[in-house]
């Protein structure tokens, strides 16, 4: 249990890192986790949550709930990174309440764990609130990863930009259910939701359902979802430049989510994630040497 409160007009100049660590245990165990972040008016903070485990053998079920309350004009950059060992179970969520003219920027990454369900619920409670919600899920082998997001636009002049991308390999499964709900009062809302998925094998499965429910008449909203394989033309293009098929697959898969990774505001998180992600795709370090050796930040 953790409580983080940032006072009025206080700008934290360093990110707060919260590491949720589970260790191996002989008998199955349950971990209830709770993080409450309260930013008072015009405060700002970056919060990085990491879910990791010390050993491969895990028999834990984690229920992790993160609550974020932003007062008027507050600004929060939030990262929720799931990098547990393959045996871990997780069901949890992020619940945010946004005051007037507040900004909430939330990034989600799900790699580890055999079964995972994350709910993200964001309430626009004050006019002018702005939310950017991005996520990447990469289930493989027999993993299942679910993201259920719900954005409630209750008041006018709020914006939401939501992009989730998934790459599903082997016989893994993913579920994305994204809902944007525009209440009758929420005029002048700008809301966009996009979910794109890449299936790397015949047995990989994804269920995606972008939903837009609009009860106000003066809003701009869009939603969409795609499910596809790697682009054959792009693969061929790599090969005509001498790059092997397997390496091209890894680079293209990485490129698919790199658009979101590159946009992250904290360089430390980008530098931490790039090698983790490239290893995840390649399983063979030799194939990712170009990705690892290219520190994009230095260019």
């Amino acid at each position: 249990m953790l409580f983080l409160q940032v006072g009025k007009n206080v700008q934290l100049n360093k990110p707060v890192q919260v590491v949720w660590l589970t260790t191996a245990n002989d008998t199955p165990f349950y971990v209830p986790q709770r993080l409450l972040v309260v930013l008072e008016s015009n405060a700002s903070a970056a919060v990085v949550e990491q879910f990791i485990s010390t050993a491969e053998a895990q028999s834990c079920f984690t229920h992790g709930v993160t609550e974020v309350r932003l007062a008027d004009g507050a600004r929060c950059d939030h990262y929720r990174l799931h990098l547990e060992a393959p045996g871990a179970l997780h069901a949890g969520g992020v619940y945010a309440a946004l005051g007037a003219n507040s900004h909430f920027n939330s990034f989600h990454l799900a790699l580890g764990g055999v079964l995972k369900r994350i709910d993200v619920v964001i309430n626009h409670n004050g006019p002018g609130a702005d939310c950017v919600l991005n996520g990447v899920y990469l289930p493989r082998e027999n993993q299942q990863i679910d993201y259920h997001t719900c954005i409630e636009h209750r008041v006018p002049h709020c914006t939401t930009q939501e992009v989730f991308r998934g790459i599903v390999a082997d016989s893994a499964k993913a579920v994305f259910n994204g809902r944007i709900h525009i209440h009758p009062n929420a005029q002048k809302t700008l809301a966009q939701l996009s979910n794109k998925n890449l299936l790397l094998s015949d047995k990989a499965e994804v269920a995606t359902k972008p939903e837009l429910e609009i009860y106000a008449d003066d809003v701009q909203c869009a939603h969409g979802a795609t499910v596809a394989r790697l682009d054959e033309n792009a693969l061929h293009y790599f090969r005509t430049r001498g790059v092997s098929q397997r390496e091209a697959e890894v680079m293209l898969s990485f490129g698919f989510i790199n658009e979101l990774i590159d946009k992250l505001k904290l360089p430390a998180v980008v530098n931490y994630l790039r090698p983790v992600l490239t290893q995840w795709f390649a399983r063979d370090p030799d194939l990712v040497r170009h990705l690892l050796n290219t520190p994009g930040q230095e260019l």
Partner: peptide, 27 residues
Amino acid sequence: LFLAFQYPVEIPGVSNMEFLKAAVDAQ
């Protein structure tokens, strides 16, 4: 053998630097 494309495919997310390095290293 090198084939120059009139309309090469766009690949967002993979930088030219990464792509060129992969190609040069392979060569």
